[in-house]
Design a protein around this nucleic acid. Structure first.
Lengths: 201, 201
DNA sequence: GCGATTTTGGAGTTGATACTCCAATTTCTC
DNA sequence: GAGAAATTGGAGTATCAACTCCAAAATCGC
């Protein structure tokens, strides 16, 4: 699957389609997003869309791939690794900031897609499970470093704490989305950070 | 809005429609659930369905109402109130048990609907926000009792802890749904219980 | 610049979906 | 048990959404 058969212009068109599809699918749900909506948002004709993607499923897959990369990028960017209480606090601020910018609409890109597709698209479910596994791994790695450095009790379990932290993020984002208020995300993550803090002593 | 205009048989038919709609909407999403699907699952004709509900929106609203009652019922049933570490542990077992019974399919009824509808149905979003508020209130009440009884530190904040606990449940359910594994829910809730436990000392 | 390949435009087709309508039947009230 | 009201059956419609097709135009390698 080389991307080399695509002209520079072709690549740009493809990207435009995926980005438009991502925005719409995450906001209003995959089933509610019509191909026509995507065509209009990306400014392309039907034949162009079907030239790049065999059908809606392929488009969904491309969106998941793009969003996974984007979310993992945010975890790294500007923050280095999540390996101290301070960097975790910055990480929380970053997420709360992004959520506030979009007025709590959409929730988590991956979480929304996961909830939407888990029961209706087995392929997408597995793809999303992989995305969450990577995300969880990033958090876990930071916690291991903290433990090795003595910032976390030796008997703390980074693997379990990483699952709990990711759950707090997802649950917090969902509650924030429903209430249109960034507080639940902040509180959920802060509570987990408090918990880690308590495990130091 | 008296329910008295409904015959016993009519009430049964209405209930059958709502239950069928709930199962389908939660499993495969609202937009993917067609009126025809619901008709078939409930064993009714189009005219019956439209006799009881003006349209799909009204049906969605009825489903949310039913599921809210059902979720809040589970919180109470058999558990009394969530007012001690022990009862919280039983509560966790109950949720993990239910999730295991359905092989982690569907996630949280309210969470799935919230993620599905928050951006596309403002009325449903508000209805769901109310449901979560009630749920959160139940948890908060239990924590207040624990604090009053000295099972929780006096400076612990039951309101914030309730939000964090609900987020843990929602996030845990989502991760369990994607991974088809009840462990994330168990770990997320256990971690929050650990946190409460630590706040005793 | 030229030929091969990629990219694009837009009309058309097929199937599904939400919803309507009216007459027949059952159920409730008294 | 009679009349009114609630309930049910099923055929029908208008709209929309996914996807197809073919020919024209732009782009790339040489």
């Amino acid at each position: 699957m080389t991307t080399q058969r695509l002209t520079r212009k072709g690549q740009a068109t493809r990207d435009r389609i995926v980005s438009a599809a991502a925005r719409l699918m995450i906001e209003q749900g995959v089933a509610r997003t019509t191909i026509e909506d995507i065509q209009a948002a990306a400014g392309v004709s039907p034949s162009q869309l079907y030239h790049y993607f065999p059908g809606k499923d392929a488009l969904v897959s491309a969106v998941i791939e793009q969003q996974t990369a984007q979310v993992l990028e945010i975890q790294h960017s500007g923050l280095g690794s999540l390996d101290s209480i301070d960097s975790l606090t910055n990480w929380r601020d970053l997420m709360v900031g992004i959520l506030t910018d979009v007025q709590c609409a959409g929730g988590c890109p991956l979480g929304s897609l996961a909830s939407d597709l888990s029961e209706s698209d087995p392929v997408a479910r597995i793809q999303l499970a992989g995305a969450f596994e990577q995300w969880e791994g990033l958090i876990r790695d930071g916690l291991v470093q903290m433990r090795d450095r003595g910032e976390l009790a030796a008997d703390a379990d980074p693997a379990e704490l990483a699952v709990a932290m990711l759950a707090a993020v997802q649950g917090g984002l969902l509650l924030s989305q429903v209430r249109r208020d960034p507080a639940p995300l902040r509180i959920a993550v802060d509570t987990m950070i408090d918990h880690l803090h308590a495990l130091t002593r």
